[in-house]
């Protein structure tokens, strides 16, 4: 493999990682502030993608689609928080797991009921499609570069939000002492709804952005959800920095593992056996990474 191809794959891993970060950030924020484990986070990702696809199809505008995704996911998040999630904060994790599992059932079949059983169409906007030539001669899709840019910008914005704004101070206070900030007169239930809607909007944004280059279909959220879990376990639950580092680690491991492992086995096995063993191992590589991190640091890298 040439160095250029390797660099291109690193870029691919980075792009995957940045999108995972958008998912993981919401999960880890909700857990950090409210102590809630939300299995239905993947459904919000799906809602974002469907809202974007439906809006883009109706208006022809990708940006309006993105706006719709943010709005729909944030609204769905806020409604769910007020109607259901709010009752779960004092409960143990077991009840939270079950209730959000039930929400997945409702969201998935509800989406299928509204949009039908076939995948929806969502395409990259014309001004972002096609490849560009990077220094060194790598041909790389412009849209994926934009994804990396958007993801990093959102990450930076999130850090600023938490470090510099009033909301950020409240979030950080909520993470360290929940009773205290209520005692200080902060409207805690409004804060919780806001944080949940923010996490949902990030997931919806990820769904819409990724939906343009993938299949927009019912159930698209669950595989990403599980990867996002791996990310925040590696990074340390509740830590935004951990989520960013974990996401990029997982993105790189998954992409490079899929490319390099079959090559590695090809050194001492015949090509088709190397291909199938290498692929099998590659599909497990991120879980192996997670186990390794946990052996060294049971609370994750930044937990």
């Amino acid at each position: 493999m040439t160095l250029l191809l390797f660099l291109e794959q690193v870029l691919n891993g980075l792009q995957f990682g940045v999108m995972l970060f958008l998912m993981a950030a919401g999960l880890t924020l909700v857990f950090g502030v409210m102590g809630l484990i939300n299995l239905a986070h993947g459904s919000l990702y799906m809602i974002g993608a469907f809202a974007a696809a439906a809006t883009a199809a109706a208006t022809g505008s990708f940006l309006l689609g993105l706006a719709a995704a943010l709005a729909a996911a944030a609204a769905a998040g806020a409604i769910v928080e007020v109607a259901v999630i709010r009752r779960l904060y004092p409960r143990d994790h077991l009840d939270q797991v079950l209730a959000t599992f039930a929400l997945i059932l409702i969201f998935s079949e509800g989406t299928r009921w509204i949009f039908g059983s076939f995948p929806l169409f969502l395409d990259t906007p014309p001004w972002l499609s096609g490849p560009v030539t990077l220094p060194g001669g790598i041909q790389y899709p412009l849209y994926r570069l934009a994804l990396i840019g958007v993801g990093l910008a959102v990450a930076a914005g999130l850090f600023l939000l938490i470090a510099r704004t009033r909301l950020g101070i409240q979030i950080r206070a909520g993470e360290s002492d929940r009773e205290m900030i209520a005692a200080l007169g902060i409207d805690i239930s409004r804060l919780y709804t806001l944080v949940f809607a923010l996490g949902a909007a990030l997931a919806g944004l990820a769904g819409a952005l990724v939906g343009a280059i993938q299949s927009v279909q019912v159930g698209m959220g669950e595989p990403v959800l599980i990867l996002a879990f791996v990310v925040i376990v590696i990074g340390g639950i509740g830590s935004i920095k951990g989520a960013l580092v974990g996401a990029i680690l997982v993105g790189l491991t998954d992409t490079l593992g899929g490319v390099l492992l079959p090559l590695l086995f090809g050194v001492f096995l015949d090509p088709s056996a190397a291909m199938s063993i290498g692929s099998a191992l590659a599909s497990m590589s991120i879980y192996i990474l997670m186990a390794a991190v946990l052996v060294v640091k049971p609370q994750g890298l930044f937990g």
Binding site: M1, T2, L5, E8, Q9, N12, Q15, F16, Q139, P141, R144, V210, I213, Q214, S215, M220, P223, T255, G258, V259, P262, P271, S272, M275, S276, S279, A282, S283
Partner: peptide, 21 residues
């Protein structure tokens, strides 16, 4: 070239790069 992808895989950037090369 001959590649096996993961079942249910959603991102093919790595494979497309290999195809191009």
């Amino acid at each position: 070239g001959e590649i096996f992808t993961q079942l249910g895989q959603t991102d093919y950037a790595a494979e497309i790069a290999q195809i191009r090369a």
